[in-house]
Simulated assay, not measured.
Amino acid sequence: MLATFLIGLREGLEAALVVGILVAYLGRLGRRDVLPRLWAGVGLAVALALGIGAVLTFGSYELTFVAQELIGGLLSLLAVAMVTWMIFWMQKAGRTMKATLEGGIDRALTQGGLWALVAIGFVSVAREGIETTLLLWSMVQSFGDAPSALLGALLGLAAAVVIGALIARGAVRLDLRRFFAWTGGFLVIVAGGVLAYAFMDLQEAGALPGPFTAAAPIDAVTGAVAVGWQAFPFGWAFDVTSAIAPDSAWAAILQATVGFMPRMTWLQVTAWAVYIAVVGFLFVRGLRSRRPSASAPLVSSNAADASVSSPTQQGAA
Rank of each mutant, 00 (worst) to 15 (best):
D106T: 09
V34P: 04
G129S: 06
A45L: 04
L56H: 06
E69V: 00
R37V: 02
M200D: 12
L75R: 07
V190S: 09
I167L: 15
F199Y: 05
Y275C: 04
F5N: 03
L117I: 14
A146T: 14
A67G: 07
F186T: 02
P233D: 05
G164P: 08
M90N: 10
A159L: 15
P262R: 09
A243C: 00
D106Y: 03
Q141S: 13
V269M: 12
A303H: 11
R28I: 00
I21S: 01
L187W: 00
T132M: 12
I253M: 12
T213P: 02
S142H: 12
V284D: 03
F232A: 03
L22S: 07
I7Y: 01
G53Q: 10
A237L: 02
Q255G: 15
Y61N: 06
Q255Y: 11
G41T: 06
G30I: 10
P217I: 03
L136A: 15
A99W: 02
L17A: 05
L77I: 15
L75M: 14
L176H: 04
G112K: 05
E128V: 00
P292N: 05
G185N: 01
L155I: 15
L70T: 14
R31F: 05
D106C: 06
L75S: 09
R290N: 13
I189S: 13
F143T: 14
V221P: 00
I276H: 10
S289F: 01
A54Y: 13
Y275T: 04
A49G: 10
L29K: 15
L202F: 09
F143E: 11
I130K: 04
A316Q: 12
A220M: 04
V194Q: 13
V34G: 06
P36F: 11
I253K: 04
G280D: 10
L109T: 11
W182D: 00
G113M: 13
E128Y: 08
W266I: 05
A40H: 06
F5L: 14
V188W: 04
G129D: 07
P311Y: 02
T57W: 10
L136P: 03
R291P: 00
V46H: 02
D33F: 02
E62A: 15
V227Q: 08
M90S: 06
S76H: 11
D219S: 02
V227T: 15
T257A: 14
W85L: 12
G27N: 10
I253L: 15
D175C: 02
T270V: 15
L150K: 03
W89T: 01
L29Y: 02
L74R: 08
L6N: 00
G280S: 11
G30K: 10
R177N: 08
W115M: 13
A49Q: 05
T183N: 06
G73F: 08
D247R: 13
E131C: 07
A215T: 02
P311R: 00
F88N: 08
P36V: 13
L298H: 05
V125T: 14
